[in-house]
């Protein structure tokens, strides 16, 4: 019987090997495999962020109030401008990458080198910007007070402007010495002491009659609820137990600790991807310079790292939306 199944277009034996149903090389397919699995990892993180946010939907920090800085502009309220700039940088470096891939298809070594170089610069600017974002986030802004239940109380004046602890706390009301490992039992030590201790903040709050407390909970319009003066005084005297300046994994002045945890984890994981992307791009850049792909006869390697680089951009588009916009 000669009725064996053959593929229609080439006339080759379907199962005889050498058949590429997806018309993509092994390397590119493996890169797609990796990208799908990495996309699932990232969506796992973002979905976990959504889970925690839905869990505390009425008390989640407002991103516009957290990310308000722009390098060089001190005291200017610039919500999101810097992240928008970072997004643009990353999209731009995606463009130079795809131009490098295109130049590779035309075997134009000079152009590939030039565009790869621009891509690396763009990536480096992005990683640097992210480091700056982190530093600003960790350093904090106004400072806040933490309650027994672990909630954050922020301060504002009667006009609705946020007030920093340093503007009203009365220094020297009480002394608080840092507890070191050598002093106590069980070798506990406490972290870096805050600039003002809780007694100094309380004294300053009582002495300034136009200060009010903003609690973590949101009203129907999605703004933080502000207590009146009597409620504020009662709240700070009854519940406040500690001062929070900036953010770490346990406390942050912006609100629930989970917010900072997810910020560090998700943007950190993404930043790590950008960093490794830059490293891989540098390796490929030098290979291009050395003429490796010229000799090989094709620039498919540039295409493969290009896929990874675009994926990093793709993820950032989602991180941008879910962390800064929504």
């Amino acid at each position: 019987m000669s009725t064996t199944v053959t593929s229609t277009d080439t006339g080759e034996n379907t199962w005889g090997g050498g058949n590429q149903p997806l018309r993509a090389s092994y390397g590119k397919l493996m890169m797609w495999f990796f990208i799908v699995s990495d996309a699932l990892t990232f969506s796992g993180f973002l979905a976990a962020y959504g889970f925690s946010r839905f869990k505390f939907i009425d008390s989640w920090p407002i991103a516009d109030e957290v990310f308000t800085h722009f390098p060089g502009l001190h005291g200017v309220n610039a919500p999101m401008y810097y992240v928008a700039f970072m997004t643009f940088i990353l999209i731009m470096s995606s463009v130079t990458m795809v131009l490098a891939v295109d130049a590779g298809h035309h075997m134009n070594k000079k152009k590939v080198t030039f565009y790869m170089f621009l891509t690396i610069i763009g990536g480096a600017i992005f990683v640097g910007s992210q480091a700056w974002e982190w530093a600003t986030f960790i350093q904090g802004d106004y400072g806040a007070v933490e309650t027994k239940g672990g909630k954050i109380l922020q301060f504002q004046n009667v006009d609705g402007e946020r007030v920093a602890l340093s503007e009203f706390a009365i220094a020297g009301v009480s002394e608080r010495e840092q507890h070191l490992k050598k002093n106590g039992v069980w070798y506990y030590e406490e972290g870096t002491p805050t600039t003002y201790n809780i007694e100094e903040v309380k004294a300053g709050f009582v002495a300034n009659p136009d200060l009010l407390i903003r609690v973590q909970e949101l009203n129907e319009k999605g703004e933080k609820i502000v207590l009146n003066r009597e409620e504020s005084l009662a709240k700070i005297n009854r519940d406040a137990v500690g001062v929070v300046e900036g953010a770490n994994l346990y406390h942050n002045e912006y609100g629930t600790p989970l917010f900072a945890d997810f910020f560090f984890f998700i943007t950190g994981f993404h930043g790590f991807h950008v960093f490794s992307g830059v490293v891989i791009n540098i390796i490929i850049f030098f290979n291009v310079l050395l003429g490796t792909y010229e000799r090989r006869g094709h620039y498919e390697m540039v295409e493969k790292v290009g896929l990874y680089w675009h994926f990093v951009d793709l993820v950032w588009v989602f991180v941008f939306t879910f962390f800064y916009l929504v």
Binding site: L40, G50, F51, R53, F54, K55, I57
Partner: peptide, 14 residues
């Protein structure tokens, strides 16, 4: 699927 499951659960806990 993942997003649906997690958001539903988060909403329930809320």
């Amino acid at each position: 699927y993942l997003v649906f499951i997690l958001l539903t659960e988060g909403d329930y806990i809320f």
